[in-house]
């Protein structure tokens, strides 16, 4: 961390209206962060605290706003797709607590914040109090989120498909749409046209597939977001089983396609039939998730 200094608890960053601003967490385990719109100005205040009776000599105070993609497999390989700097103070000595306002006006934030298995995309502001070599820089970062609402798709067909194993199992399934917003309900049906195997149960899984990097360096990772049992027991021919799944209940992101040429996140519905010998018969279908504008 040479050259970057260490995170200092003597610097505090606060965003404008932080108390009333929408906050969200990307996952259940992560902390809640303020959310900024795609072109929203990022403003706020920085406070550098100087303990009583001390002074801080510095070579300048600056604040950066960074949009960054980070690959976990390749530590330290950061790709900053946005990087803006504002000088807050020229070199000098601080004798007491000093406050600075910052303002990144109408800054463009083209991507959503994302926290995946091999990659993450984040936005943050970083305050650096540059000092001489011996004292080391004082640094403080404050992360924020950007979530990009998308308009509803113009075309949104249903997914309908007939699949089967000859003389063994023949089903037809249907999901009402191909594109779902994040609080959407997946409604579907499974028709059993032929059942010659002893089915034990049927489930619908949501699978997230993350592709990070490119070429030989590409890392693909699949993750089951949820397994949702939709049928218990063996149906007979002609049976039609309803599916209803509330996406709300799960931690999903919109589908990301080739973000800054660095990564993609895709979602699939996987319909799985398990027979009494624990054999699994499945069919995956990609669906597109998008973030709808808040109602």
């Amino acid at each position: 961390m040479f050259g970057f200094g260490k995170a200092s608890d003597r610097i505090a960053i606060s965003f404008e209206n932080e108390g009333s601003r929408t906050k969200k967490a990307l996952s259940a385990s992560s902390t809640q962060l303020p959310v900024f719109g795609s072109t929203e100005s990022v403003r706020g205040q920085v406070e550098v605290r100087v303990p009583a009776g001390k002074k801080v000599e510095h070579l300048g105070v600056k604040i950066e706003l960074i949009g960054q993609i980070e690959m976990y497999y390749d530590r330290g390989n950061f790709h900053d797709f946005t990087s803006l700097v504002r000088e807050l103070d020229s070199p000098g000595v601080l004798l007491r607590d000093q406050r600075y306002a910052f303002d990144f006006g109408n800054v463009e934030k083209p991507y959503e914040s994302y926290n995946g298995l091999n990659v993450r995309l984040r936005y943050f502001v970083r305050v650096t109090v540059t000092r001489n070599y011996t004292s080391g820089n004082m640094v403080k970062e404050a992360e924020f989120l950007t979530l990009l609402a998308q308009p509803p798709p113009d075309v949104n067909n249903s997914i309908k498909m007939e699949v089967g194993i000859e003389e063994c199992l023949h089903i037809e399934f249907e999901y009402d749409k191909v594109k779902y917003h994040l609080s959407d309900i997946i409604i579907g049906k499974v028709y059993f046209l032929l059942v010659r195997i002893k089915i034990k149960h049927m489930e619908l899984a949501i699978i997230r597939r993350e592709a990070a990097g490119t070429g030989a360096q590409q890392y693909n990772e699949s993750e089951t977001v949820t397994k949702f049992e939709v049928m218990d027991g063996a149906p007979v021919r002609g049976e039609c089983i309803p599916i209803r799944l509330f996406l709300n209940n799960y931690n999903v992101t919109p589908t990301y396609r080739n973000i800054a040429n660095k990564f993609s996140v895709k979602y699939y519905l996987n319909l799985v039939l398990v027979d009494q010998e624990e054999r699994r018969y499945f069919k995956q279908q990609e669906i597109t998730l998008y973030r709808a504008a808040a109602a």
């Binding site: 049928m231 218990d232 027991g233 063996a234 149906p235 309803p242």
Partner: peptide, 13 residues
């Protein structure tokens, strides 16, 4: 009554 179709096991159903 529709959703209950999810249980196809005779006795449990």
């Amino acid at each position: 009554v529709e959703m209950a179709k999810g249980v196809q096991h005779p006795m449990r159903g």
